[in-house]
């Protein structure tokens, strides 16, 4: 299915503070998008608008030529999955139970989980490498482990669009790479769209087809990674001097910073 978003002059404000300011954007299927920008620049809010968790104050968002607001919650949950930045797990559900919650949009109200649902959940856990804590209580897992459980839950949702809101912020580099590789594979193999808020510019450069730079609620730059990731953009958005070059070892564009003042 070709999932595409079209945003037209979308704005959103918390009270008087404008968080997203006139963003127009078209997102095509089968691409890995990196959403980058300084803290508080509106990345998470933009993701919430795309998820229909928030409604734009002005402007329109269309998903597959239909206004986002026309979709029901359940229907939307079969199109879009989100790995939130902050998540709470207060009750002692097992890892498997939490991952199976990803199948909720497909289950009839009183229907039980089918063998197919279970297989999808198991596959998602295997992809993230958390099979070993299948039966452990999520309340007893470490922060990083919990985060991987939440990623597996979003994978089990099997949606054509996957949004990651700093999904790897609690993870060590090994597990962070693992999750980005799984997301990348979904783009390559299934033609899914991934929209990821990423703080680490080098991870973004290595995995994303396109970068969306945001600053103070506005789009600062947007387009293929090779064209947008430049010292000028980094300077304009983050106010940091940098050098961008093709790195032989990582086989990707990499950014280096001057650490002294």
């Amino acid at each position: 299915m070709a999932e595409h978003f079209v945003l037209d002059r979308v704005s959103f404000a918390y009270g008087a503070k404008l968080a997203v300011d006139g963003v127009s954007l078209a997102l095509s299927p089968g691409r890995f998008y990196g959403l980058v920008g300084p803290n508080g620049c509106g990345k998470s809010t933009l993701l919430d608008l795309l998820m229909a968790n928030r409604v734009p104050a002005s402007g329109t968002i269309r998903l597959n030529d239909r206004p986002l607001g026309d979709y029901g919650r359940r229907e939307l949950a079969r199109h879009l999955a989100l790995v939130p930045q902050d998540f709470t797990i207060n009750f002692a559900f097992t890892t498997l139970e939490v991952v199976l919650m990803g199948r909720h949009p497909y289950l009839p109200r009183f229907g039980a989980v089918s063998a197919a649902d279970l297989a999808i959940a198991e596959a998602a856990m295997a992809a993230i490498g958390i099979e070993s804590f299948r039966d452990r209580y999520v309340t007893e897992l470490s922060g990083g482990e919990k985060q991987r459980v939440v990623v597996a839950r979003a994978l089990a949702q099997a949606t054509p669009v996957l949004m990651l809101d700093e999904a790897t912020s609690n993870l060590d580099i090994g597990h962070a790479l693992g999750i980005f590789r799984v997301a990348r594979a979904r783009v390559e193999e299934r033609g899914d769209t991934v929209i990821a808020v990423v703080h680490n510019l080098n991870l973004a450069a290595a995995f994303c087809d396109e970068l969306i730079f945001m600053n103070q609620g506005r789009l600062a730059a947007c387009g293929p990674t090779r064209e947008t990731l430049t010292p000028e953009t980094v300077q304009a958005v983050f106010g940091v001097a940098s050098q961008v070059r093709q790195d032989a070892f990582s086989e990707a564009l990499q950014v280096s910073f001057r650490y002294g003042s």
Binding site: D48, M51, N53, R73, R74, E75, L76, A77, R78, L80, A81, L82, P84, D86, F87, T88, I89, N90, F91, F93, E97, V98, M101, G102, H104, P105, L107, R109, V150, A154, Q157
Partner: peptide, 20 residues
């Protein structure tokens, strides 16, 4: 009941899992 289970993961998660 199942919605309530999912809601215990927080509102942003349960919204994205199709719970009103």
């Amino acid at each position: 009941g199942r919605d309530l289970n999912i809601m215990s993961l927080g509102g942003r998660s349960s919204d994205s899992l199709g719970v009103e």
